[in-house]
Amino acid sequence: MEETTKRELVLSINGERRSIVARQSETLLFVLRDGLGLTGAKPGCLNGDCGACTVLVDGTPIKSCMMLAIETVDKDITTIEGLDDAPIQHAFVRHFAFQCGYCTPGFIMNAHALIERRPNADEATIQEWLESNICRCTSYQEIEAAVKEVLEAKKAKPTDP
């Protein structure tokens, strides 16, 4: 392997600055998992199809299997490990919105971003966002209930500007 293509990257992850030496062609998913031990984001296809690897970059959900780690220098990365008691985590637990749990970190990150970015999301928007993730265990009805509950709660209790 040509060591020359490795580079030291300083990434801002879950509010912490982490430094790591990685190949320039390495994806964010592999750097998070193998380099930094953040195994919450899951590989499901490495092809952009399943959403299991979803993390937030500057608050936007992205599929970390198709983004280079080096692209995220100077950006804020949030992984499932960085969520702190988010309402969506509670809702997922309450609504039995997962079984094997493998799709869950990706689903939760996407749903969390939806809730933060589109608190007034209508049916179509919810579907548009959440159809990015595949769950093979649940029927999605449980996930739908969890997400809608959080959105409703948020609407009922708007945060002051």
Binding site: L38, T39, K42, P43, I80, Q89, F98, G101, T104
Partner: peptide, 22 residues
């Protein structure tokens, strides 16, 4: 409807699967 024992591991990314052990 008891909540599954590993529920909080699964919603926080702590739950580990075979390929998570390196």
């Amino acid at each position: 409807s008891i909540i599954r024992k590993e529920a909080w591991d699964k919603v926080t990314g702590r739950a580990k699967y075979t390929n998570d052990f390196k």
